[in-house]
Simulated assay, not measured.
Amino acid sequence: MLTGKQRSYLKGLANTEKPITQIGKAGLTESFLEQLDLALEARELVKISILETALLDTKETANEAAGLLKADFVQAIGNRFVLFRRSKNNPKIQLPRPKN
């Protein structure tokens, strides 16, 4: 679970990123989720766009994908959303530490 400060930090990192993949009419297919799982392991932070023809709600789709992939939902703007999951083998992103 991300804190507000961590989420804000990740939003800043994602701001300059371009979407790495798109979700089409088929929605969250198994092959799409497999690709996204690999992308999260390699990059930790990914931005995804939803095609307008898909007629999917961005936040619902983002939360569903996050739940299925055990990732954290970072943000949704328009037809794009950002997910984060720390890499098991090669963590790259250092999140700000939560205050105790």
Rank of each mutant, 00 (worst) to 15 (best):
Lys70Asp: 06
Arg80Asn: 12
Ala71Ile: 04
Leu68Gln: 13
Leu56Ser: 03
Leu10Lys: 00
Ser8Gly: 04
Leu10Arg: 00
Glu52Ile: 13
Met1Tyr: 06
Asn90Pro: 08
Asp37His: 14
Val82Trp: 02
Val74Gly: 00
Ala65Lys: 04
Ala54Glu: 03
Phe84Gly: 03
Pro96His: 13
Met1Ser: 13
Leu40His: 05
Asn79Ser: 15
Asn90Gly: 02
Gln6Arg: 06
Ser49Thr: 12
Gln22Glu: 06
Ile48Gly: 00
Pro96Ser: 12
Leu83Cys: 08
Arg97Lys: 15
Gly4Phe: 03
Ala65Tyr: 01
Gln35Val: 06
Leu10Phe: 06
Glu34Ser: 10
Ser49Gly: 10
Thr58Val: 04
Phe32Pro: 03
Asn100Val: 14
Glu34Thr: 14
Tyr9Ser: 05
Ala54Val: 14
Leu2Phe: 00
Asn63Asp: 11
Leu68Ile: 13
Ala39Tyr: 07
Asn90Phe: 09
Asn79Glu: 12
Arg97Trp: 12
Glu52Cys: 14
Lys11Arg: 12
Leu40Phe: 10
Tyr9Pro: 04
Glu64Ala: 08
Ile77Arg: 14
Gln35Leu: 08
Leu28Asp: 01
Gly4Tyr: 01
Gly12Thr: 03
Ser8Thr: 11
Thr58Arg: 11
Lys88Arg: 15
Thr16Pro: 03
Glu52Arg: 13
Val82Gln: 01
Ala76Cys: 07
Lys11Asp: 02
Lys25Tyr: 09
Gln75Asn: 11
Ser8Asp: 07
Leu68Thr: 07
Ala14Trp: 01
Lys70Trp: 13
Phe32Met: 04
Pro19Ser: 06
Gly24Lys: 11
